[in-house]
């Protein structure tokens, strides 16, 4: 794995790799190099299996991380490619022509994170949610509890007490 990364790094200007454990490596990639890298990995290095494609919202850093997890099943090696997108106007490049199944992942990312993938089939159709009018729910700034409490009705009549406050109130109210 190390040789492969060393081999690919200059050509695709990869970031510093993280060797998580034998058989699992993460590395940062640049958006303009992604497609060539994926094709290279798939066709020349045996990374033919797209395990998953997902995003991580680094709200504080103002960017989305796209993770392309590729697997070389013969060598039992998994390579995670991390691609950072600007959070303000997230736009990814579709890879459904490389792996048709990526179209599904991209639909989900479009719906759940609001990341656009122009050209991906059915990407703008509703996928999981129906009649969703709020911000994409997997974004960090979407507060699911607040949304839930504003939208749905909960059964009332519940009240809890904090031990510390209760004891203060009852045992030493003066101080």
């Amino acid at each position: 794995m190390r040789e492969l990364i060393e081999h690919l790094t200059p050509r695709y200007s990869l970031g510093a790799p993280v060797f998580q454990r034998p058989g699992l490596t993460f590395v940062d990639v640049k958006r303009d190099k992604l497609r060539a890298l994926l094709l290279d990995l798939r066709d020349k290095h045996g990374f033919t299996h797209l395990v998953l494609l997902t995003a991580v919202d680094w709200l504080e850093e103002g960017r989305f991380q796209l993770t392309y997890l590729l697997n070389n099943r013969a060598a039992d090696q998994t390579l995670g490619l991390r691609l950072y997108l600007d959070r303000a106007n997230p736009m990814g490049d579709t890879i459904h022509d490389i792996w048709p199944t990526a179209a599904t992942y991209q639909r989900e990312l479009r719906e759940m994170f609001g990341i656009a993938f122009p050209g991906s089939p059915r990407v703008d159709e509703e996928f999981i949610l129906e009649g969703w009018t709020d911000m994409p729910p997997y974004r960090r700034d979407f507060d699911t509890l607040a949304y839930s409490q504003q939208t749905f009705v909960e059964r009332g009549g519940r009240e809890t007490h904090e031990p510390r406050a209760t004891m203060k109130h009852k045992l030493y109210p003066e101080g």
Binding site: R155, R158, E159, T160, H161, E162, P163, R164, T166, M167, K170, L171
Partner: peptide, 23 residues
């Protein structure tokens, strides 16, 4: 789980007991 008062608090015992919502 809600902590609800069932007893007066004592030292080392808040007098609260868990009430469990099976919903």
């Amino acid at each position: 789980i809600d902590m609800v008062p069932v007893d007066d608090p004592k030292e080392g015992d808040s007098g609260l007991r868990p009430q469990i919502d099976y919903g």
